[in-house]
């Protein structure tokens, strides 16, 4: 059996001819299984670029339906998709873009009860969620499952990302041991976001996944990358493993997901703060 069929040779030719990537890189992507948690602003570019590149299996987790207010940034969905489950809308676009990719949809809330089962079949996990509750849960679950996690968060004009390779580089809790107290950072609907910010960060996440699957280049493990869209600048901060980290430190206190509350939903916007 040929390594790639005629259609795949043409589809992937521009990346196969990149020496570091090559045929070997394409074969590795084809065998790769990536779980994207969140089919929104970050999940849109991540899933689209991974499907376009020929990642063999892409899993999508999201319990939401497409809302009109999503469309200024969640470019995988269209106006006609409003009201549809995001995973269904996204899967349709991915299959249309690349029918060689197997897309698995999970129209469920990502919670402590199903997190480990959802992660189990995949090689790499992408954090494309929109709140700290889900971010910490996904982070802990990925670490406990031993899966590399490509983290990103966005707010207004800024994005922040890192890659967590369990037991190798720093984890998110090495730097931010606990979620910020409720109310200190605007969440979900109240925060506001300029569309290209998740576009930039999600695209960078897709690049991280490609590197993790193919083994080429240097990942962001041990580094925090901060993008300032208004100033058009990137900043990088080295992060080290923290021996006191509650998850990956010498005496971890987090050994399972029992500390995560089930059934959490994004709260409605808080009233505006008074000066």
């Amino acid at each position: 059996m040929p390594l790639l069929n005629e259609e795949e040779i043409r589809r992937y030719s521009r990346q196969i001819i990149v020496p570091e990537f090559g045929v070997a890189g394409q074969m590795k992507l084809g065998k790769g299984k990536v779980l994207v948690v969140g089919a929104g602003g970050l999940g849109s570019p991540v899933a689209l670029y991974l499907a376009a590149a020929g990642v063999g299996t892409i899993g999508l987790v999201d319990m939401d339906v497409v809302d009109l207010s999503n469309l200024q940034r969640q470019v995988i969905h269209g106006t006609g998709d409003v009201g549809r489950p995001k995973v269904e809308s996204a899967a349709e676009k991915l299959r249309r873009l690349n029918p060689h990719v197997y897309v698995e949809t999970h129209h469920v809330a990502f919670g402590p009860d199903n997190a480990m089962d959802l992660l189990a079949p995949y090689d790499v996990v992408v954090d494309a969620v929109d709140n700290f509750h889900a971010r910490y849960l996904l982070h802990d679950a990925s670490y406990l499952a031993g899966k590399p996690l490509v983290e990103a968060g966005v707010l207004r004009f800024e994005g922040l990302m890192t890659t967590v390779v369990p037991r190798k580089g720093a984890c998110y809790r090495c730097v931010f041991p606990e979620p910020p107290p409720p109310g200190t950072i605007p969440t979900c609907q109240e925060a506001g976001i300029i569309g290209p910010i998740p576009g930039v960060m999600g695209t960078l996440q897709a690049m991280e996944v490609i590197k993790l699957l193919t083994g080429i280049g240097e990942t962001l493990s041990g580094r925090l990358l901060i993008f300032d869209g208004l100033g058009a600048s990137f900043r990088e901060v080295a992060i080290a493993r923290n021996p006191k980290c509650p998850l990956c430190g010498e005496h971890p206190t987090i050994k399972d997901l029992s500390g995560h509350a089930a059934g959490w939903v994004c709260p409605p916007p808080a009233p505006p703060a008074t000066p």
């Binding site: 040929p2 390594l3 790639l4 040779i9 043409r10 030719s13 521009r14 196969i16 001819i17 090559g22 045929v23 070997a24």
Partner: peptide, 14 residues
């Protein structure tokens, strides 16, 4: 091009 190179690389791969 670039299929000339892609096909050559695929053949070498095997």
């Amino acid at each position: 091009c670039p299929y000339t190179l892609v096909r050559t690389l695929l053949a070498l791969e095997e």
